[in-house]
Design a protein around this nucleic acid. Sequence first.
DNA 1: AGTTAATCGAGACGGTACGTCACGTCTTTGC
DNA 2: GCAAAGACGTGACGTACCGTCTCGATTAACT
Lengths: 211, 211, 211, 211
Amino acid sequence: MAAQKSTQPAKPAPDSTRRSEKSRRAIYDAALALVVEVGYPKTTVEGIAARAGVGKQTIYRWWSSKADVLMEAFLDLGEQSMREAGPVPYVFPDTGDLAADVKGVLRATVDQLRDPRFEVPSRALAAEGVVNEQLGRELVAKLMQPSLDLYIGRLRAAQDAGQVRPEIDPRIALEFFISPLAQRWLQHTGPISYEYTDTLVDYALHGLAPR
Amino acid sequence: MAAQKSTQPAKPAPDSTRRSEKSRRAIYDAALALVVEVGYPKTTVEGIAARAGVGKQTIYRWWSSKADVLMEAFLDLGEQSMREAGPVPYVFPDTGDLAADVKGVLRATVDQLRDPRFEVPSRALAAEGVVNEQLGRELVAKLMQPSLDLYIGRLRAAQDAGQVRPEIDPRIALEFFISPLAQRWLQHTGPISYEYTDTLVDYALHGLAPR
Amino acid sequence: MAAQKSTQPAKPAPDSTRRSEKSRRAIYDAALALVVEVGYPKTTVEGIAARAGVGKQTIYRWWSSKADVLMEAFLDLGEQSMREAGPVPYVFPDTGDLAADVKGVLRATVDQLRDPRFEVPSRALAAEGVVNEQLGRELVAKLMQPSLDLYIGRLRAAQDAGQVRPEIDPRIALEFFISPLAQRWLQHTGPISYEYTDTLVDYALHGLAPR
Amino acid sequence: MAAQKSTQPAKPAPDSTRRSEKSRRAIYDAALALVVEVGYPKTTVEGIAARAGVGKQTIYRWWSSKADVLMEAFLDLGEQSMREAGPVPYVFPDTGDLAADVKGVLRATVDQLRDPRFEVPSRALAAEGVVNEQLGRELVAKLMQPSLDLYIGRLRAAQDAGQVRPEIDPRIALEFFISPLAQRWLQHTGPISYEYTDTLVDYALHGLAPR
DNA sequence: AGTTAATCGAGACGGTACGTCACGTCTTTGC
DNA sequence: GCAAAGACGTGACGTACCGTCTCGATTAACT
């Protein structure tokens, strides 16, 4: 086999086994708190470091930018609340009634979009992702894709049950539920309510159902 | 009615009649060019001023922020290209075939989303609008609403022609065409193509049409 | 006449006519005070800026380093105290008695070397000059040379009066008065006192006088 | 009297019997090399450790500062070259001709002051000693005093031989030879040459000799 | 020879200061 | 009399070293 000499002679790459778990936690907490309190643009690396009681270099050693820190912090927050939520958290309900199931999930999403603990950081990350494609793709892959896959699974089940036309591509169909809500939220193009998401589901399923 | 002198004792309020048209143009051009060339975050007020051959104060006198400058510049760009486009710019095609009409408009939108002259500044503004609600609302009102109204008009006409169920709310229905595309573009959640927008229209209209 | 286009395309070179005199004074004062209070190594550009109520950039705009600031500050201090001292401050006494004249001047020098207002900054500058040849030469030229010239003048007068052998080079002879004192002071090689400098003069003049 | 174990409860005081000789050598070499290559201010403890292939703590365990390391390294360099020089290193020539003897020694000093292997580190140490009195005194005691004592010895011999007036204090007289040269070198106040030191000796001895 | 304890290379850590960049305000100068 | 030019106080950037603090892995002295 060929030699596997390292390929980046520039920076020595820190030794992650020696990493301070305490500092990481403190940095996550500080970053999330600051974003919520003062907003993303006024959140600075210096501020995070100071609040976390940590040297700036400790941040730059492990992350490349403010956005990077915040993304990991947010991901960690998600994992944390999931761990708290119990052992079988993430499945899409399947009662047989597609409309009701989707409406339920969307209502939960609406709740989350309104919780400032989630709203402010997600908004900040989403904004960053709009402009920074690499970070945007990471966000999608790590934060959104898991949920989207659940939608796809549920829609496939509905197709098997004959409730959705078989020629429909579930990866596109799910956008009818998610994208309008996402856009209203992201761009403030309209109010967000249970009534609205329910309507969305009704209109959309009408088009997906067999005639 | 009497004169309506505004009453701001704080700042002398610049006299807009004396404003230099040449400077304004130069600032617009510089702002757009810089955003396209180096990206929004690296575009600075100082850079715009230098490139426009203008004092910084001349920018701060008339605009409140980098985002503000860029928004006006972008609006101006829109008006300009519309003026160039000739005397009949702002109507939604109505050939009687709703699907074809919408597909055509969406294909034009796809083209625009891919033109870097438009893409980079719009992305920058959209990102800013995600985080800055006030600017976001302004963006929607000034840049998006006119187009949305055209969709609404066309959908109403389709309802009158019996091609769309009368109980459908056109302001929600239009989101089935626009939001999935918008989200794919904004969040890089998927590829954008004529085929994609065509499929969107087909799926959506299936749900809107009377049974 | 030939064109006189600027030759440094790199940095725009600040406009010294717009320079803030108040800031300069504040910076000089802060630099000298800090050096005396906390010593040269613990004096930082940041500290000077903070104490002077000035932005760091204002320092870096006009000086290239901490040592540079301190040198100008010290020079300014010298000019200032000279201006205060009256209109004809800087002449070497010439009573006809060379030994007495030189002893008097050296005693004044001893006094100055012990005044902390002068001692700490001069020591710092001297140290810097030992290692940084360019700054060292500047120091010698601006701070020491004027005094040395006065010695040379007095020695020449003594030669004319037949008190010093004519073949003696005054530029070397003066080092017998100055260098031992300088070295004792700089390198802490011995105590400094009037008695010491008097002895120096006696020994040295013995060698300079005609037989 | 009883044992005189020092009482420092704070630090366990490293056990010098276990000290790694190899590391010490490597640190000396690295320190001297770096000072010559990049100059004293750009020489860092981190750099010395890296170049010596040694942990930073190994430096801080045995030395208190960069200057401290450099001083020991330089002292060691001196001892080393003396050991190489053979068994009769440390005597002042005494041919009976005081002028010739002193001129010879000063010429050797001039040579040394120009050898970069010595010049750069000595300059750095001298500069440090100017500002840091404690280190300055150490330097004088360890590096200069031995040589000075030799001068004193030679001058005493000259007094015994009637070549120097008996009331002259040799500790002051020697400064006429050494200080002017030292100052020229330290402060770049003038060129250094054999001719110069020869002149110095001539002028000075003229003053020291009996009439 | 095996045990034990200190030193060793390594480098992450909380900090401080660096020198640079851009901010938004304020002042001077020239057209 | 406005606007270009740009100096100013401010504050964050990302980097370099500081001196301290763990980590195994030697390594040398003492059972």
